[in-house]
Amino acid sequence: MAETARRISALEGRAYQGPGIALNPAAPASRLSLRAPEASLAALSKALGLILPRKPKTTAESGKRAALWLGPDEWLLIDEGGADLTVLCAKASALHSAVDISHRNTAILVAGEHTEDVLGAGCPQALSLARFPIGAASRTVFGKAEVVLWRIAEDAFRIECWRSFSYYVFSLLEKAAREV
């Protein structure tokens, strides 16, 4: 039978390193858009092995898996180990919608002391540690693209965006990085 197709990331080959700032595409990961009512959260949390966060702008992590609160009934699940998250969710009999978006999104890692300034070139949200602490995540805009920001360390963010917007998002980040 036919051989397995090659996986080609939208940002293959792109990277930028400047003083106090580094931009790198994140490794492929499996991702899930999970939608569920309150009543299903316990069962789904159990199936996924992490407690789905209920508080706005927060995340929960367990090993290589994370759940980002995006809305009152919406989570973005990211598994850097590549686990099949739809299968995990299907094990919970609770009402939910699980849609695989592993390839819809791609991610850029922004790190370095100038991270906040570089993101500030296009993101109107307050990004200070006080307002956007480590572990916080939010859907927002970066320039003219929609993104999900996730602060993974004091001076590091993971930016999730749709595949075809990643070129624009990376380019704007790079432009801003060259200017700080």
Binding site: P124, Q125, T140, V141
Partner: peptide, 18 residues
Amino acid sequence: MLLIHCPYCEEERPELEF
């Protein structure tokens, strides 16, 4: 640009998001 309080996100967010 206005700040708008989102009752679901429980905080004020920039108008560009709305």
